[in-house]
Amino acid sequence: MGVGIRAAGEDDRQLVVRLLDEAFQDDPVSGWVFPEREYRRTTHHRLMAAFTDIVLAEGRIDVTEDGTACALWLSMPAADGDGPDGRDGPDEGDEADDAVRLRESVDPANARVEEIARLMAESHPADRAHEYLWMIGVAPARQGEGLGSALVQHVLDRCDREGLPAYLEASSERSTKLYERLGFTYADRTLDIPDGPRMWPMWREPVTGRDRP
């Protein structure tokens, strides 16, 4: 049986924030940003809410019909402006300002909120337009059922039709295995957070009709 998937709207904001908060409470990167477990339990949702608001405004969020999983995507133009909408890529000054605003809105005294935003922006490939899988969250009780794979494949099918590559940063070695099965390959470099965990940037070229098995 297939997984029903739909595009999320503003009415789904609370659902998406809850899914991400629950799914990433024990994630290595979330644990680095909010090291104290009790503080993370009461504050982590603010970061997930900020991410949700950004993608609702600038990208696309897909959710399963039963509301148990979600995926956050952004369409990223190339730095030279040859992206699908002809826009230039992100400016470094804008990215720095965005990181500051994120910290101020989420947890003003927590420099790690700003630092993780800066690190991820700096490591992001800018030479080609692509779809960026920012986050994917599955309710803990439903993990391992293929919901995440279905959500990702839903957008990858479009990438293949339109000839677009896709990019993500895996936050654990375990999750890299899932993405490898979906055609992503390790980008030959890790994103090493100072005194923290490691992330694995991964890239996927579109699969053309000639390349399909």
Rank of each mutant, 00 (worst) to 15 (best):
M1W: 10
M1G: 14
G2T: 14
V3L: 00
G4V: 06
A7Q: 15
G9I: 03
D11Q: 14
D12A: 09
V17E: 06
L20I: 00
L20F: 13
F24Y: 10
F24V: 02
V29L: 15
S30I: 07
V33R: 01
F34I: 01
P35R: 11
R37E: 12
Y39A: 14
Y39V: 13
H44R: 07
L47Y: 08
L47W: 08
A49S: 15
A50N: 12
A50L: 09
A50V: 01
A50K: 11
A50M: 08
I54Y: 07
L56I: 05
E58C: 09
I61T: 05
D62V: 00
T64G: 04
G67K: 05
L72M: 14
S75Q: 14
M76E: 11
A79D: 09
P84E: 13
P84H: 05
P84G: 04
P84R: 13
G86Y: 07
R87G: 04
R87E: 14
D91F: 04
G93D: 13
A99Y: 07
R101S: 11
S105E: 14
V106D: 04
D107H: 14
P108T: 11
A111F: 15
E115Y: 08
I116P: 05
A117L: 05
A121W: 06
S123I: 09
H124F: 05
Y132P: 02
L133G: 03
M135E: 10
G137E: 02
G137M: 03
G137L: 01
A139R: 10
A139W: 02
R142F: 15
G144I: 12
L147Q: 05
G148A: 06
V152E: 08
V155I: 12
L156E: 12
D157P: 00
R158A: 08
E162Y: 10
E162D: 14
L168G: 02
E169H: 05
E169V: 11
A170Y: 11
A170D: 07
S172N: 04
R174E: 15
S175K: 03
E180L: 01
R181F: 05
R181H: 15
F184H: 05
F184E: 06
D188H: 12
D192S: 10
P194D: 03
G196N: 03
W203R: 03
R204H: 08
T208Q: 09
G209F: 13
R210C: 00
P213K: 09
